[in-house]
């Protein structure tokens, strides 16, 4: 690992200021960044540890939406009774990220800002009509995620929270890659009235995406059978040791149907 300067600001103002230093990089739980740095694949000049910023912590459950502050750890989402009552699928998702030790450190802000193509949270943000809140603006999910490891974040911009719309029902179905335990294919399904939203992670070479065909079919008829005739193309799906594009495309449909069933459809 290359050396760097470590700073741990105590408030958001200082954090934003610290992000202005040369080659600054935000550090939250560090569960992805630290291994990346060990491989010498990242060389920040300054690492800005955001976990000491009180404005970045906490979960707020409102009548129509839920806001999770960026430095909230997966374990806190997993164990939030309020959140479990509001959006149980989100709690389920958090409870299956990585392993217990990763969940004790990793944060939603870090996950969203990193936008790993196999991460779980981006699918939830997309399906739950989420908004990524930063220190200077709000970005809709569809604008925020811009491909593999790419987001709308600008230099020195810090994710401060993620806001989700509360669905009528939702389910996250994760098919794990057996080694990394990331999502080989994960489907987050959310139902808002008649509207079904289907977001897919782990499968596409372009990162998280919503599947229009499945959404259309499920919005018309919220049953597992409704997904059957939908064509899920393997074009643009990831090819790696663990899955061919055809397999991933197949899993999208299987996971979607399971999500529908879990939602009572």
């Amino acid at each position: 690992m290359y050396d760097f300067q470590y700073v741990k600001p105590a408030n958001l103002y200082d954090a934003v200021a610290a992000m202005g230093s040369e080659d600054a990089q935000a550090l939250s739980g560090g569960q992805t960044l630290t291994p990346t740095m060990k491989q010498r694949l990242a060389q920040p000049g300054t690492l800005v540890d955001l976990t000491g910023v009180p404005e970045l912590k906490g979960i707020e459950v409102g009548p129509d939406s839920v806001t999770i502050k960026a430095a909230t750890r997966h374990v806190e989402v997993e164990r939030s009774a309020e959140l479990r009552a509001a959006i149980p699928a989100l709690v389920e998702l958090a409870s299956r990220i990585g392993d217990p030790q990763v969940r004790n450190r990793g944060t939603i802000g870090g996950s969203v800002a990193n936008n790993d193509p196999s991460a779980c949270y981006p699918a939830a943000v997309m399906a739950l009509d989420g908004v990524v809140v930063t220190n200077n603006r709000e970005i809709s999910a569809s604008d925020f995620f811009q491909g593999v490891y790419a987001t709308a974040l600008e230099e020195n911009e810090i994710v401060t929270a993620v806001r989700f719309r509360r669905p009528d029902s939702a389910s996250y179905q994760k098919f794990v890659q057996p080694a990394s335990r990331f999502a080989l294919t994960g489907v987050f399904l959310a139902k808002f009235g008649p509207e079904a939203r289907v977001a897919v992670t782990g499968a596409s070479e372009n990162g998280v995406f919503r599947h229009a065909g499945l959404e259309q079919a499920l919005s018309a008829s919220f049953t597992a059978a409704a997904a059957d005739p939908v064509a899920v193309s393997a074009d643009g799906m990831i090819q790696d040791l663990h899955g061919t594009p055809a397999y991933r495309a197949h899993l999208i449909k299987v996971m979607t149907k399971r999500a529908v069933q879990a939602c009572g459809g």
């Binding site: 057996p178 080694a179 990394s180 790696d240 040791l241 663990h242």
Partner: peptide, 11 residues
Amino acid sequence: LPSGSYMDYAM
């Protein structure tokens, strides 16, 4: 060796 770490070699 694509299966060169525990990210891809499943233990």
